[in-house]
């Protein structure tokens, strides 16, 4: 046989054997005892490491889950992207009861599109909401509205939120959104809220965060909530889901039954819904603009 081949095989074999011995010794010597359940639970999690649970990555949550199990219950720990299905499987494996949470989705609470809130100023700088926010109120002059530079889009790990070029507002893709909350933290104006998906995906929300008095808010944006309170009155008496505070209406998702009665009464069309509301009675419809269902 060719000596070159022999030597190669022998030398490489020796090197490999030496390396194997070192690896074996090191692995034994530096072995860290770890709860094997952590690995198992990590496997069950989606593995996106999105941080939506509040822990650094899926392993962080797995550790927390195992620790919580030893204390008795999961204490509200939840993997938002994994959802109930994942949590149920983990609960079964760890032998603890898991409370079921309803499906949720991110919702953008601003209706200040380019048409409704036209630019009165021009921002010239890096495409970062956080930077523009430190500079001024915004191109439309609304100090509460969307700056349209897409910090939420950058923050999303699931490709679930996109800028609509026409309106200049972000739109959430319901199918892809796992309500991890990354966009909620990223938005310097706190415009995004995680709300229940709603029965059959029906949900209603006030697409405005402007707490200015009506006149001021209207000056910046035609779709602003002016705090008139018509929606509060329109909400069925038994439900009482809408509250008005600081010139701003808020629909409590826990109470709202998504009847849609508040939508047509809003004079500015600040209330948005995922469904087409029932045809308003002619009287109330006078000032109402039809909200866009997304």
């Amino acid at each position: 046989m060719n000596p070159v081949i022999v030597y190669s095989v022998v030398v490489l074999g020796l090197v490999a054997a030496g390396a194997a011995v070192i690896l074996f010794v090191v692995a034994k010597k530096f072995k860290v005892d770890e709860d094997p359940r952590i690995d198992e639970v990590t496997e069950m999690l989606p593995g996106a490491n999105c941080g939506g649970c509040g822990y650094p990555g899926c392993r962080g949550l797995a550790e927390a889950l195992v620790r919580a199990t030893d204390k008795g219950d999961l204490g509200g720990l939840m993997c938002p992207p994994g959802g109930n299905e994942t949590m149920a499987r983990i609960g079964e494996y760890l032998g603890v009861a898991v409370e079921e949470a309803g499906p949720t989705v991110a919702v953008v609470r601003c209706g200040g599109s380019r048409a409704k809130a036209p630019a009165k100023l021009e921002y010239d700088g890096p495409e970062r909401c956080s930077i523009a926010h430190s500079l001024f109120a915004g191109e439309s002059g609304c100090a509460y509205g969307c700056l349209g530079l897409g910090d939420c889009v950058t923050a999303c790990d699931f490709d679930a939120i996109h800028m609509n070029r026409e309106t200049g507002l972000p739109e959430v893709d319901e199918e892809k959104c796992v309500s991890c909350g990354a966009c909620v933290t990223a938005c310097p104006r706190n415009l995004i809220e995680i709300r229940p998906l709603g029965r059959n995906g029906r949900r209603v929300w006030v697409a405005c965060m402007n707490r200015e008095p009506g006149g001021v808010a209207r000056k910046a944006c035609k779709a602003a909530c002016i705090g008139c309170g018509l929606c509060v009155k329109a909400c069925p008496e038994k439900i009482q889901a809408i509250t008005l505070e600081n010139n701003l209406a808020y629909i409590d998702p826990a109470k709202c039954i998504a009847c849609g009665l508040c939508i047509p009464v809003c004079p500015t069309g600040a209330i948005q819904a995922t469904f087409e509301p029932v045809k308003p009675k002619p009287k109330a419809a006078a000032a109402a603009t039809a909200p866009s269902g997304s």
Partner: peptide, 12 residues
């Protein structure tokens, strides 16, 4: 490049 814009952001 918007150097100072981002430095200020980092500084904050």
């Amino acid at each position: 490049r918007p150097l100072l814009d981002f430095i200020r952001y980092g500084k904050v």
